[in-house]
Design a binder for these strands. Sequence first.
DNA 1: GTGATTGCAAATCTTTTGCACTAAA
DNA 2: TTTAGTGCAAAAGATTTGCAATCAC
Lengths: 139, 139
Amino acid sequence: MQRPFSDVLDRLRGKGLRPTRQRLALAKLLLERGDIHVTAEELHGMATKEGIRVSLATVYNTLHQFTDAGLLREIVVEPGCSYFDTNVSDHHHFFYEDSARLADIVGADVSIARLPEPPAGMHVQRVDVVIRLSANRKG
Amino acid sequence: MQRPFSDVLDRLRGKGLRPTRQRLALAKLLLERGDIHVTAEELHGMATKEGIRVSLATVYNTLHQFTDAGLLREIVVEPGCSYFDTNVSDHHHFFYEDSARLADIVGADVSIARLPEPPAGMHVQRVDVVIRLSANRKG
DNA sequence: GTGATTGCAAATCTTTTGCACTAAA
DNA sequence: TTTAGTGCAAAAGATTTGCAATCAC
């Protein structure tokens, strides 16, 4: 599952994104560690922790460039904060309301039996399913 | 479907919300005109247009009080802006990405065939399905 | 070199909050 | 009266943008 460094570089190049120091470092953080969901703030924190110097503005810009390039998927489940998902395949999410965490649902575990016809002149861009979870009351 | 004024008043009272001039006016705007989806800014605009003087801060507070009381449902589909839905029954949404509009999907038109088991100690609070639509390319 | 990218700080946008004032019960 | 609710302006977050400095090619 782990891809070699040169692959990240190629993936950026393949999308027409110049592989700058910052983009490479962020791409490695994001794409070489399985499926994760991060906010811009969190990714900035991860970078800082690893000694990568990058501004928060660049993190935001980079996340959106990666999203536009199809390397990430943006998910909004709560007001005031976007998550970015490194899993860009067709899948849905659990959202833990108590901890504000997202988790992927294995594709086959949710299936939509019937989809309504999209209105005339429209086509379906994407279907998002979010299952919101709370902790059971103790006792 | 249209309920009389006194009913709005009773609904507020029933929820323990003191029926102030502002709350009554906003409740009438929201609850006496079928199913709608509004942002705080839009509702404030609607109120202003009808000559109802109410501050944007009060609109925000009121929307959240109504949501907590179960009179509205909050929906987030894009970063930086919440919608409030007057339809609080179980249903899902179309989201028109081009115009940033929401529309209800009739309940029976979407059905989820299989739901994954919620993780241990968790229960499902709500399932949100958003079908994102774009206009077809002309030509 | 040259144009794309970055960093910073300032700007923007949505939403929340503190607090004196007003109104409902 | 007494307490909840309102308005305003200021604060708080998340995100974006302008622009000079820097980097990839």
